[in-house]
Write a protein that binds this DNA or RNA. Structure first.
Lengths: 106, 106
DNA sequence: TTGACATGATACCTTTTGGTGATATATATC
DNA sequence: GATATATATCACCAAAAGGTATCATGTCAA
């Protein structure tokens, strides 16, 4: 629950692109902003919103802030969406129930 | 692809609640707005945005408009999120690859 | 300690968003 | 036809979002 922060963060295309970049490697704010034609300030705001949605987490190292992907928010959004699978695809729903069972036994 | 409309629509909590209501039953605009303390006009706007994101589709019947859940948009958002599973949960990723294979053989 | 570098923070601007209220149109129903 | 019902549309408003520019702070390196 509390998927609001995650869905709010996911609504912006720039933020989704940031997540894609962070899936390739952890990055500092500067490294992220190098990949966009936008000021550091704007990127910093996006990173803050991603952090609030628990889609990324941040580790400070000296004067750098290293951003990396965080499962929590992404999973909460994905779980919310997966609720709807049951309404049009029973087979998929059954398999995903199996996954949940499986992952609990880790 | 083109998941922007879906994610934009999902960002608002009222719209996510509407989807939950529509998962129980198809509803006219009036029936949806009866479930919220908000004007019909506001609900109509939300339904338009949900339709633009392909999260619902609408069938006209006389003077009524019947809204019902639509897999397309929800699946496109879910698929986008599922891409990230591979980065922290190999077992889950493997099982979901199996699902994709399975559902293609339908 | 001085200077360069990475980030933090703030004020400001424009556009979008989420909502209201009023009015118009189309369709049932009597 | 007259009237009630369901929705459509439009103007309007306040607040939030997305961006810039500027200045402050903390840290590394010589």
């Amino acid at each position: 629950m509390n998927e609001q922060g995650a869905f709010r963060a996911l609504a912006d295309p720039t933020r989704r692109q940031i997540l894609m970049h962070l899936s390739a490697a952890d990055m500092t704010i500067g490294e992220v902003s190098d990949r966009f034609e936008m000021t550091r300030g704007a990127i910093k705001k996006h990173l803050t919103i991603l952090e609030e949605g628990n889609l990324i987490s941040v580790q400070t190292s000296g004067r750098e802030r290293i951003n990396h992907l965080e499962p929590l928010g992404i999973k909460s959004a994905a779980n919310w969406l997966n609720y709807f699978n049951q309404f049009w695809d029973d087979k998929l729903g059954a398999l995903q129930s199996a996954i949940e069972k499986e992952t609990k036994n880790d």
